Amino acid sequence: MKKTLVTLLTLLILCSCGKTEKDLIVTGHIKGLKKGTIYLKKIEDTLLVTVDSLIINGDPNFTLHGNIESPEVFFLDLDKNSTEQDRIKFFADKGTTIINTSLKNFVFDAEIEGSAQQDIYEEYLLMISKVNNKRLELIKEQFEAQRDGDSVALDSLVKVSKNLVKRQYLYTVNFALNHNDSEVAPYLALSEIYNAQVKFLDTINKKLTPKVKTSKYGKELEAFIKTIKETEK
Rank of each mutant, 00 (worst) to 15 (best):
F106A: 00
L8A: 15
A145P: 15
D86R: 06
K233W: 06
F62A: 05
E111L: 04
G149A: 13
N105P: 01
E111F: 04
F200M: 15
D155G: 13
V165T: 13
E69D: 14
Q118T: 10
N195D: 15
L201Y: 05
K89T: 12
K166Q: 13
R147C: 11
L48K: 01
S53M: 07
K219S: 04
A110S: 02
K162P: 02
V73I: 00
V198D: 02
E230I: 05
S182D: 07
S82W: 12
K226C: 13
F224H: 05
T101Q: 12
Q85P: 08
L54H: 08
V26M: 06
M1K: 07
N163Q: 12
S182P: 07
K34V: 03
L33E: 02
K31M: 02
K31E: 07
S182I: 05
N61D: 14
E69M: 13
E137G: 05
Y39G: 01
P60N: 08
L8P: 12
H29F: 03
Q168V: 09
K206S: 14
S115M: 03
G28Q: 10
N133H: 14
N163C: 10
V160W: 01
S156G: 10
A110K: 00
K213I: 02
E44P: 04
I68D: 05
V51A: 00
E230A: 06
R167V: 04
F74L: 03
L188S: 03
S182T: 08
I112V: 10
Q85I: 10
A176W: 12
Y187W: 07
D45N: 15
L164T: 00
L9I: 07
I193A: 10
K233T: 06
Q168K: 07
H179K: 01
G36R: 03
E72Y: 02
R87I: 13
S16E: 13
S16Y: 13
F91M: 01
L9H: 10
I112W: 01
N178P: 03
S161Y: 10
T46L: 05
N100L: 12
L9Q: 05
F106N: 00
V51C: 01
A176F: 11
L126H: 14
Y39D: 00
N67M: 12
D52R: 05
K206P: 08
K89D: 09
D148V: 03
L170C: 08
K130V: 15
G32C: 08
R87D: 11
S151Y: 12
T101G: 09
Q197T: 06
N100A: 12
G66K: 06
S161I: 06
K34S: 02
S182Y: 07
K104R: 09
T101D: 09
L190I: 10
N205H: 11
V165D: 13
S129G: 12
A110C: 03
N205T: 11
L78V: 11
A185H: 05
G28W: 04
T10W: 05
Q85H: 11
L24F: 00
K211V: 10
F75N: 04
H29C: 02
L188C: 07
V107R: 04
T63A: 09
H65L: 04
C15V: 15
E44Y: 10
I99Q: 00
F108C: 07
K166P: 09
D155W: 12
I204F: 12
K229Y: 10
L48E: 02
F143D: 09
